[in-house]
Design a protein around this nucleic acid. Sequence first.
DNA 1: CGATCAGTTGACAATACTCAAATACTGTGG
DNA 2: CCACAGTATTTGAGTATTGTCAACTGATCG
Lengths: 230, 230
Amino acid sequence: MSNESLTEWLGKTPLFAGLKHEHLVALGGIAELKNLFRQGLIFSEGDPGNGFYILRDGKVKIFKLSPEGKEQILHVFGPGEPFGEVPVFAGSNFPANAVCLEKSSLVFFPRSAFVDLITVNPALALNMLAVMGRRLRQFTEMIDALSLKEVPGRLATHLLLLSKKPGQEKDFELELSKTQLAALLGTIPETLSRVLGRLRQEKLIRLEGSRIIIVDRDGLEELAEQGRFL
Amino acid sequence: MSNESLTEWLGKTPLFAGLKHEHLVALGGIAELKNLFRQGLIFSEGDPGNGFYILRDGKVKIFKLSPEGKEQILHVFGPGEPFGEVPVFAGSNFPANAVCLEKSSLVFFPRSAFVDLITVNPALALNMLAVMGRRLRQFTEMIDALSLKEVPGRLATHLLLLSKKPGQEKDFELELSKTQLAALLGTIPETLSRVLGRLRQEKLIRLEGSRIIIVDRDGLEELAEQGRFL
DNA sequence: CGATCAGTTGACAATACTCAAATACTGTGG
DNA sequence: CCACAGTATTTGAGTATTGTCAACTGATCG
């Protein structure tokens, strides 16, 4: 039962989201659960990459120590995020240290078992590549959207992006609160609210609560390209 | 010789950058070169994903046709970019059409040969996973940086990001022109120039042509978090 | 019903963009 | 090696956009 829910949980993890159930089960089979307390050492710089982790709960910092002993934090990971996978996949050593910032539980995938898994089951590797490829593409588009100068352009691009997911051609639910969307777009709720209002006024979209209906896709695309109203 | 340079070129491609030479050679071995003219059809919606492409030269559009025959462009790819890999890796059909926007040359990787390759050579799959994992992480951080409200914060975050690549702890060359960097950060050269000037004035960085030296990392990090000068 | 919180609206201030012009920088041809 | 054209970067002044602060609405929840 515990194992059941682990499998399920793995499927929600960015690294594995979208994998077939059989693959998730196989992964669950080789996973080892580890619980650490605050300050618990996960790995040190130079350790051989003999396995990677997905953080189930808690918080982990990745950091390097300068010769003078000063700590340079490279990253802080939260639940669901994988870490250490790059050196493990690449077959190199860990380039930094990892320590728990708080009581954390980790899912550990030993390299050897993982390699065996994909050797026996190349479809798993392909699926993981597919998962990552998809995310990579989404991120690329996201970065495109965010590098527009003005908020209306960023918003329009983002809306078009959302509308390209299958099954939401012309209308969709915002999966983020407007406040969160504002932060994502690099702005604040007030501005977002005004810009949405303006888009509605210009009849490019319609709003029904947290549902957005695209009324004039061409108009939106124009806005997305030009970055400003005409 | 032509093949020689293909191998080399593949190594510069985002999908394969960082792979070991032997892997690149193996990939070059199964690649097929295709040349198409403007309007040339690469694949259609519903076609089985029997192989994926990397665009060597030219421009390709990915689009869907609505029932009324209206074309909805999902993406335009340029040289170096892979396309069609997600459905191929996932073992599904192409969800859209692909046509050349101009005379283009493509590198085609047949699915079966590719699958054979990674079956025989799981290290290739691992390496590709490593490549994509690394890029994914970079993109995540990039998106973080871009979603800060103000330019100084976006710039500071971006500089810290660059400084985390190995071998450039405190100083590094800009790999983009300042104009391009401005566009990437969602601003314009004038603003970037002024902000860089301000950062220098505040003694957070030093400028030597296109080389940037981080003088006060803590100051930069503060700026990156707060998003504005104190 | 009062409290809290997301969302909206208004007035104002700060930031960033536009336009214009000066100044470096680069590569080319003489 | 120098002059020149073309491009990239910097600087200045004015304006537009966006963020801040504050007040208000509406929904949710105990």
